[in-house]
């Protein structure tokens, strides 16, 4: 696809913000309302059903806390990758992006171990509405983590060659957003008991 002719439109920047970054901001805006819908519905149910706490008690708070830490660390790497990209150091940016991806996969692995345990204990997506929300909200978030990891791998391989370094910042923005969503999910699904 390298022969793809870029229209002149892509080179303009009336707002002064790069187009890619602008698009990521809009993407984040539309994602906020999606997660807002899930979390809003969950909160409404949760407030109406205090007895759900007995189900929430079976979530693995330590795994959740560890994952929070993993994501926060990976966000730090994303910031470092952005800094490196700003200094036009593609190799270094790629290195930090790979570390971010490592964080993403650690998160997913911990998550899958956690879920396996819970499903074996009989808490499946259809066993109770709390668990339906638990798997749905975390599942949608997990898909975002996976998508972010794949995009970062693509961008890192470009950045290594010094191509499209401005994308490092854009994907970093997206990654911070994914982290912030988790910051909301963690207390709502794990801590509130």
């Amino acid at each position: 696809m390298s022969s793809f002719p870029r229209p002149i439109a892509t080179t303009r920047s009336v707002t002064g913000i790069s187009t890619g970054k602008l698009a990521v901001w809009w993407l984040i805006a539309s994602e906020i309302v999606i997660f807002g819908g899930v979390l809003g519905s969950y909160l409404m149910h949760r407030i109406g059903h205090p007895e759900w706490a007995s189900h929430a008690a079976h979530t693995n708070t330590w795994a959740g806390a560890f994952n929070t830490l993993v994501l926060l660390t990976s966000s730090l790497f994303a910031v470092l990758a952005h800094q490196a990209a700003d200094q036009k150091d593609g190799k270094k940016a790629a290195k930090f992006l790979y570390l971010t991806v490592l964080g993403a996969f650690t998160f997913l692995i911990v998550k899958s171990i956690e879920w396996t345990g819970e499903i074996q204990a009989g808490y499946t997506i259809s066993s109770h509405t709390f668990w339906s929300f638990y798997y749905t909200a975390a599942g949608i978030h997990g898909v975002h983590v996976l998508a972010g990891a794949i995009i970062m791998l693509v961008i890192a391989s470009d950045a290594k060659k010094g191509v499209d370094l401005q994308r490092v910042e854009a994907v970093g923005l997206y990654w911070h957003f994914v982290d912030i969503v988790w910051i909301f999910l963690f207390p709502l699904l794990y801590i509130a008991k």
Binding site: W26, A29, S30, V33, I34, G36, G37, I140
Partner: peptide, 9 residues
């Protein structure tokens, strides 16, 4: 974009 999120959820 601002309204469709809850329905997607």
């Amino acid at each position: 974009m601002a309204s469709v999120g809850p329905l997607i959820a």
